[in-house]
Each structure stands twice: as structure tokens, then as C-alpha cells.
Amino acid sequence: HNLTITQGKLFFHYNPKLCLSEIHKMEEVSGTKGRQERNDIALKTNGDQASCENELLKFSYIRTSFDKILLRWEPYWPPDFRDLLGFMLFYKEAPYQNVTEFDGQDACGSNSWTVVDIDPPLRSNDPKSQNHPGWLMRGLKPWTQYAIFVKTLVTFSDERRTYGAKSDIIYVQTDATNPSVPLDPISVSNSSSQIILKWKPPSDPNGNITHYLVFWERQAEDSELFELDYCLKGLKLPSRTWSPPFESEDSQKHNQSEYEDSAGECCSCPKTDSQILKELEESSFRKTFEDYLHNVVFVPRKTSSGTGAEDPRPSRKRRSLGDVGNVTVAVPTVAAFPNTSSTSVPTSPEEHRPFEKVVNKESLVISGLRHFTGYRIELQACNQDTPEERCSVAAYVSARTMPEAKADDIVGPVTHEIFENNVVHLMWQEPKEPNGLIVLYEVSYRRYGDEELHLCVSRKHFALERGCRLRGLSPGNYSVRIRATSLAGNGSWTEPTYFYVTDYLDVPSNIA
């Protein structure tokens, strides 16, 4: 807008934040220059609390790290170098490059900038070799853009010569660093050979998330399962459950009422301010606690030095998902009996873990797994792929695949051998790939016309006998059925096997 004052003059007093240069501009645009008398524009009460600059400061050096910015700028000295009290560095987070010096300023003089007072450097006698002032900004957020400017702080001049310097606002972004852990990993099994893994992005990506790394490792069953005799009275049979499938998407929606109208769909109840505040506090606490764990609990591995020492970490090797089922080394339970199943799973520490690289999504279907087997899954978020990966501390989750139908069934015939004193040795093959492992066998036998009897055969007993022995049988026709019990439950009964026990007292003698 054009402003013209045809008559009258300007009068400025007691404006401590208004620089004289701005008042002189007002004289020019209003056409009143030359009308004012000496005392109409006070030299001592206008701009006496402001830094009124008329020179431009330029930054000469900028260096960044993930949490620091090192700045240096060209030296500046007023005509009387004693008038320079120091520099004021202003900075704040700036997602967009549209910041002005006066953003967030209120009537009390406060604003949204963080201000650092910096002492002037030592003055050199040689004007050509003056030290460049600077400042190291610490405690910054990774991968965050900051708006920065600097200006001088000078003393009051009796001659009211307006001098000083100020830089333009520059924008500097800190470097990326390792992201925080992925949030809320959930693993479920939808079949006997697959596990579905879902997660949420890290709360602090500290860069642009480029991919996720998912490692999985087959877990050995508890050692007590191999040692305890679950045929003993009072000892509860062990059981394991597989990871249940995901709930429906509708039930997972946030901010939804727990109660549904019987007449149909209901609208979600909005969260109160107290609920939102509580969630923010919980989120802040979780982030602080995660940072504490990362800094205190997890110790970084030592990389190899120039002395030739090897990095103890196993090298990563990509495998196809079809090879995942046989990740671990199978060892027989008892070496003397080769027909026992290889369900003991000690994992070799030198073995390469299978892994998958996930790009542009937060889910993965891990296939080719062994049925009813526990897996430990390790999830890392990465925001750099080359020249070397920059990934987060791992988040861990466990899951067990679903049982395989008929995996616990005894394959092959049940054979028998009759000894003296009416002892019958029953023999059968253990299931080759049971659900988890076989903890015991149930032997059901009966003599024709009598009630059915049951015998429990422990895992250890089966390994020693290759089956079991029935003792003290009365003469007669017998039928026997056997079924295995694994961590997933009972298998199917075998087809009945028949044998006849004679009275050993009636056996004919070869003595003449």
C-alpha cells in the first residue's frame, strides 16, 4: 500500500525493539523526510534493546553428524571492536523451508527459537588472519532439518551509529543413524509349514526405512522333555500350542467401542483428552525405555581390526524358502538304536541362519518350516543398504507352526516275539517326523474274553527296548493296539495285532 503524509511529521519514542533503520525507511515511504526535528525521533529510546544489523554474515563451514552440527561463519568486528559482546545463534526444527525470524513471537518477546549466546573469538592483530567464530550444536535429532541463523550482539553506541551483522536463515539436516526397533511384532501360524509375521514401523526411523531383515531359527525343545518319565503317576503330560491366527481386521481397528449394538453396526467412541494424553505418555515412556535398553543392555560386537582377528559373527547367506525346513542338525536320541526319531534339535552355532529381506511392506510369510516346531524370529529395521547396512537392534518374537495331521501315527506293522515265561516283546517304529517329539506310547492289549488293559511306555523305555515287553501273560489269544502321544496330543491307534500265548508248562520236552 502507498502511504503519503502531505502535512505533519513523524514522532517515535520509547520503541526499544524498533531499529532506527526501520524508522528511516518509514520517513522515505511516507514522504516526511526532512520535516522531523532532532528530538522527534529519539536516538536513545528507539532500538536500544534490539540488534540492528546492516551487514550480512556468511557461514564459512558446515559439518553434520547424526546428532551434531558444527558451524563456522566469517569474522565480524565493528569499528570499535570492544562493542562486540558476542553472537546469538538461533535454531529450531523446520520440516519445511518457510521459516521466518519472527515465527511464534508474542507480545512478551518470546519466540519459538532456541538461542545460544556465543563469546567472540580472540581478536588477531592481523586483519587478514582473524579467527572464524563458530559453535557445535549438540543433542539434535537424527535425520531432522533445522533452520539456523546467527547475528551479532553489540553494545549501545553513544554516537548512535547503527552497526551489526546478521546471516540469512539456512537449512541444515542432520545425518541418518540406526533406527529404533520395529514396533509390535506379531507372529502367527496359518499352516503346519508357515508363519505369518506382521509389525509396525519404528517410532524413530532416523532416516528413510529402506528394508527390513527377518531372521528365523528353529528352537530346540526343553531338555526336561527328553529326561522326564511322563508315565509316572502324578506327572502331567506336557503340551505345546501353536500360535493362533490373526483376529479379523475389524476387531483390530483402534479407537473402536468394545460393545456392539445388537441391531447392527455401531460407531466408534472418540477417545477423551485424558485417554489420548495417557497414550502419549505411555508411548514416550516406551521410547525412553527402549533407548535405555539399547544403550545399557546391548553391547556392540567388536569388529575385526587390522591384526587379522576374525569377526566372530557368522556370515549372512541367503537361502531359498524351500530350504528352511531342514535348518537344524538332527541327532538321534540314543545312538545305539537307529530307529528312534531325530527330534532332539541342538543347533550348531556355526550354522548360517536363513533370512529374508523385506522391502516396502511390514509383513512376511515364512514358508518351508517344520510342522509343530518353535521358531525364534528376529526382526531388524534398516535405513541404508549400501555401502553397508545400517540397521536397528533386533526385536524378537516366537511362534510355533501348526501340527501336521497323521504325523504322530505309527507307520509300519507292530511285530512281536514270544519268549519263555510268557513274555512277549512288542516292537514298532517311532514316527519319523512327529509333531514336536514323542513323549510316550500307549499300549492297549486284551486277552479274548477279558477286559482291555493299558500300559504306558516312556520315551526312554522305548529307546532301550525298541518297544516294550509284556510279562506274566496268561495263555490265550491276544490283540494289541499302540498309539503315540506327542507334544500336540495323541496320534491314531494302530491296526490290531494278534498273537497267541501258550502255557509254557505244557511245552513238550526233548528229553527222552
Rank of each mutant, 00 (worst) to 15 (best):
S203Y: 06
S203R: 15
S203P: 02
P205A: 08
N206H: 06
N206P: 02
I209V: 10
I209G: 15
T210K: 15
H211R: 15
Y212I: 09
L213F: 03
V214P: 01
W216G: 12
W216R: 09
W216E: 04
E217F: 08
E217V: 13
R218K: 05
R218I: 12
Q219C: 10
A220M: 09
E221Q: 13
E221F: 10
D222P: 06
D222Q: 13
S223M: 14
L225R: 13
F226I: 08
F226N: 08
E227F: 10
E227M: 11
L228M: 07
L228C: 06
L228T: 05
D229Q: 05
Y230S: 03
L232K: 13
L232E: 10
G234I: 12
G234Q: 07
L235G: 05
L237I: 14
S239V: 14
R240H: 14
R240M: 14
R240C: 15
T241P: 14
T241C: 14
S243P: 11
P245Y: 15
P245I: 12
F246A: 11
E247A: 11
S248F: 14
S248I: 13
S248E: 01
D250S: 11
D250F: 06
S251A: 10
S251T: 11
S251W: 05
Q252F: 08
Q252E: 10
H254P: 10
N255G: 05
S257T: 08
Y259Q: 12
Y259F: 13
Y259V: 11
Y259H: 05
S262L: 10
S262K: 05
A263N: 13
A263H: 12
S268P: 13
P270S: 06
K271E: 02
T272R: 08
D273G: 07
D273C: 09
S274I: 00
Q275G: 04
I276H: 07
L277D: 03
K278M: 09
E279T: 05
E279A: 03
L280P: 14
E281I: 08
E281K: 05
E282N: 12
E282S: 04
S284I: 09
S284E: 01
R286Y: 04
K287L: 02
K287N: 01
T288G: 06
T288M: 08
T288H: 01
D291R: 03
D291K: 02
Y292I: 02
N295T: 05
V296W: 05
V296N: 14
V297P: 02
F298W: 01
V299T: 02
P300Q: 10
R301F: 03
R301L: 03
K302Y: 07
T303L: 05
T303R: 11
T303S: 08
T303Y: 15
S304T: 04
S305T: 05
S305H: 08
G306P: 14
G306I: 14
G306F: 08
T307I: 04
A309Q: 12
E310W: 01
E310G: 10
E310S: 11
D311L: 10
R313E: 14
R313P: 14
R313L: 09
P314E: 14
S315Y: 08
R316Y: 06
R318A: 13
R319M: 09
R319K: 15
R319Y: 10
R319Q: 15
R319N: 14
S320A: 14
L321C: 15
L321N: 13
L321T: 11
G322S: 09
D323S: 07
D323W: 09
D323L: 12
V324R: 03
V324G: 07
G325H: 08
V327A: 11
V331Q: 11
P332L: 10
P332W: 08
T333P: 03
T333F: 14
A335N: 11
A335I: 08
A336K: 12
A336M: 15
P338F: 12
N339G: 08
S341Q: 10
S341N: 14
S342M: 09
S342E: 09
S342H: 14
T343K: 13
V345M: 09
T347N: 06
P349Q: 04
P349E: 00
E350S: 13
E350R: 09
E351S: 13
E351T: 13
F355D: 03
E356V: 11
K357N: 07
K361R: 05
K361Y: 13
S363R: 08
S363T: 06
V365K: 02
V365T: 03
I366P: 00
I366H: 00
I366L: 11
S367A: 08
G368F: 07
G368K: 07
L369W: 02
L369S: 08
H371D: 08
H371S: 12
F372S: 04
F372M: 10
F372Q: 01
G374C: 08
R376A: 01
I377C: 09
Q380M: 15
A381R: 03
A381Y: 05
N383C: 07
N383F: 02
Q384T: 10
D385Q: 12
D385G: 12
E388C: 15
C391L: 00
S392M: 03
V393R: 01
A394L: 05
A395D: 09
A395W: 00
A395L: 09
Y396G: 05
Y396D: 04
Y396T: 07
S398Y: 13
S398V: 06
A399C: 04
A399F: 06
R400H: 10
R400Q: 03
R400G: 07
T401G: 03
P403T: 04
P403S: 03
P403R: 04
E404K: 15
E404I: 10
A405D: 12
D408H: 01
D409V: 11
I410P: 07
I410M: 11
G412R: 11
P413K: 12
P413M: 15
E417Y: 04
E417R: 10
E417F: 12
E417L: 10
I418D: 02
I418G: 07
N422I: 02
V423H: 14
V423P: 01
H425R: 12
H425V: 15
H425F: 14
H425M: 08
L426F: 04
M427D: 07
Q429L: 07
P431G: 04
P431Q: 03
E433M: 07
E433P: 04
N435C: 12
L437Q: 12
I438Q: 05
I438A: 04
I438P: 02
I438T: 09
V439S: 06
V439K: 14
Y441M: 02
Y441C: 00
Y441Q: 01
Y441N: 03
V443Q: 00
S444D: 15
S444T: 11
Y445K: 05
Y445C: 03
E451K: 13
E451F: 15
E452C: 08
E452M: 05
L453V: 03
H454N: 02
H454R: 13
H454T: 10
L455N: 13
C456Y: 05
C456T: 06
S458Y: 08
K460S: 13
K460A: 11
F462V: 08
A463M: 09
L464K: 13
E465P: 02
R466V: 05
R466A: 08
R466G: 15
G467W: 07
G467T: 03
L470Q: 01
L470I: 14
R471S: 07
G472M: 12
G472R: 08
S474C: 12
P475Q: 09
G476V: 02
N477W: 10
N477H: 11
N477M: 14
N477E: 09
Y478E: 02
Y478C: 00
S479R: 13
V480N: 00
R481C: 06
A484N: 02
T485D: 06
T485A: 03
L487H: 01
G489M: 07
S492G: 14
S492L: 14
S492I: 10
W493A: 00
T494P: 01
T494S: 14
T494R: 01
E495N: 12
Y498A: 09
Y498F: 10
Y500W: 14
T502M: 15
D503N: 07
L505I: 09
L505E: 08
L505R: 06
D506K: 04
D506N: 15
N510Q: 09
